[in-house]
């Protein structure tokens, strides 16, 4: 897959319309790389003029900040803002709600002002404007999907509708979990929990959430965050009874529907 970096674009005198901020999970985690590739495929299919930072991208500092390490957060933010401002970036799309939240809400105070959107918002825009076409006979038509709200998309930023609108455009049946939208139950990864063992308790949070997802009897659990994806996949795999329920990012679902 040929993906331009900002450096390459600048060298050839081009300016992308939007920067795709891939994020650490999307760049390095084998499972999340598939989400990244699916989203890049959609951008390509929709004819979007985009670029990535490539090797110049660095962690936004979100997990460090939430763990309490403000120094490290500020160092990463400083470095990223230098890079982004250096390229004159104005618009950013990201597949990670944590990167999204940090870039959108926390970088402005540090001199990084960008128009930041989450990939589910861009997907909604592309579908509504007809830039990507989904037929009624797409691969997902008629299937049942449940959507897991990412905390950093939902409660943190009030984005509940975009991911649902995208899924509904696939002629699927959207089945809500017991706790959804602003009541949604966390997957257990946020606040840097992804990078440590859970504290002792009766149950793992992802097990609890996986159980709720399974209760909907949906064919697929749709996620919009690479960390939620990992947590829910583990939660479902750790259940004693096996199920056919898959956990897929909305970008992967859409990519399959337009292939």
């Amino acid at each position: 897959m040929k993906v331009n970096t900002m450096a390459e674009m600048m060298a050839s005198g081009q300016t992308p319309d939007i920067l795709f901020w891939v994020g650490c999970a999307g760049s390095f985690d084998q499972r999340a790389q598939k989400i990244t590739k699916a989203f890049a495929f959609i951008l390509e299919a929709a004819g979007i003029n985009y670029a990535i930072l490539g090797k110049e991208e660095a962690c936004t500092g979100d997990p460090a900040r939430r763990a309490g390490n403000e120094f490290m957060f500020q160092m990463m933010a400083y470095q990223n803002i230098q890079t982004l401002n250096g390229y004159g970036i104005q618009k950013i799309v990201t597949t990670c709600p944590h990167c999204f939240n940090t870039l959108k809400n926390e970088y402005p105070a540090l001199g990084g002002n960008y128009d930041v959107i989450h990939h589910t918002q861009l997907l909604q825009e592309l579908i509504e404007s007809g830039k990507i076409k989904i037929t009624d006979s797409n691969e997902w038509a008629g299937k049942t999907i449940t959507y897991h709200d990412s905390c950093y998309l939902g409660r943190a930023n009030g984005i509940y509708e975009a991911p649902r609108k995208v899924l509904e455009s696939l002629s699927i049946e959207l089945k809500e979990m017991k706790r959804c939208k602003s009541n949604g139950l966390c997957c257990g990864a946020g606040g840097a929990q992804m990078f440590k063992e859970e504290e002792k308790g009766d149950l793992r949070i992802n097990t609890e959430r996986a159980n709720e997802a399974i209760e909907t009897k949906a064919n697929c659990v749709a996620s919009a965050c690479p960390f939620c994806n990992t947590m829910l996949t583990d939660g479902i795999n750790n259940r004693t009874e096996t199920t056919n329920t898959s956990v897929l990012d909305i970008a992967e679902i859409v990519a399959q529907a337009i292939q």
């Binding site: 760049s27 990535i52 962690c59 160092m75």
Partner: peptide, 19 residues
Amino acid sequence: IENNFAPWKFSPDDRDAWT
């Protein structure tokens, strides 16, 4: 994060390996 610019121990050179 400090050394590899990511919370995991991957080489920053591999950040665009997925492409």
